[in-house]
Design a protein around this nucleic acid. Structure first.
Lengths: 146, 146
DNA sequence: AAGTGTAGTGGGAAACTGTGGATAAATATG
DNA sequence: CATATTTATCCACAGTTTCCCACTACACTT
């Protein structure tokens, strides 16, 4: 079960430890990809395959879906988890997510997100303040009403 | 049945005892999550699974539902209950619920809430004084009218 | 009243995990 | 082809977490 918040450091070699609780669920190989809101997403190989299917199903004749597929596939990258449970984060993804030294790692049930700590704390604070408002504005079908 | 109010201490290692009356109903593994009004919620694994299903059903393309899922999943954490019936509370949840040493534990039928004792007493005092007023503003279908 | 059991609290020792660095392999450069 | 630079693999330390046991207090029994 991938849930929880962890604060880890990225070292000078751009290595980031995966929380030990997550390692069994993720296996030895994972895919790191761009996420929404300037974070990174780490998928189990199977989960990534699902995401990839969705992207492949988009209508390539329209500009927006085409761009989305392009940016997601080109931004993704499959990496091995080393013996100590760390992954190597490519430069272009470090930049995309504004990652420096302090990272926040979030378990989101079927995936993991990696944020620059500062950005996450900011985002979290905002969201925490309005959780009840948000919850009230989401109807039973799971879509936002205003 | 999870009902009643208990006052327990959280020790220096952030361990909190689950009232012995609740232990059989909760099983060996539980999930601790953010609750509304800055308290924590402890779920039986099955109850949590229900909650998680709801969150997974949200439309992740929209910003507000995405934030909600993020804050709920990252704020949760699955823990084992140790042999003496205690759970370990992660730092970020201690902070979220303003927990210090004295905690109030509430049984709410299908779940447990954990409050900082001071906050709970304050909240309780307010609510006790106006139970009848509050009740009058809730209609038969359980929703608030103003 | 003494004994027995259970429950809440505290602490010590062992195991684990995050982090930094050292060494070896691979790739690039002149 | 040799050297330099990057990339990957391995190891060591320290702090935390986890596991286990001791103590005290209260309730209930005999």
């Amino acid at each position: 079960m991938l849930i929880g918040e962890y604060k880890f450091l990225i070292d000078e070699k751009k290595r980031l430890a995966i929380p030990s609780k997550f390692r069994k669920s993720l296996g030895k190989k994972v895919v790191i990809a761009r996420g929404i809101d300037n974070c990174l997403v780490i998928y189990h190989l199977n989960e990534w395959t699902k995401e990839a299917k969705k992207l492949e199903g988009l209508n390539k004749n329209q500009s927006a879906p085409r761009s989305l597929a392009r940016i997601m596939f080109s931004g993704a990258c499959d990496v091995d988890i080393d013996k100590l449970g760390r992954v190597l984060i490519p430069d272009y993804l470090m930049k995309y997510a504004f990652l420096k030294k302090n990272a926040a790692i979030l378990g989101l049930s079927d995936r993991i997100e990696v944020w620059d700590d500062e950005k996450w704390e900011e985002n979290k604070k905002k969201t925490e303040m309005s959780v009840s408002d948000i919850a009230e504005n989401i109807n039973s079908s799971g879509t936002q009403e205003n």
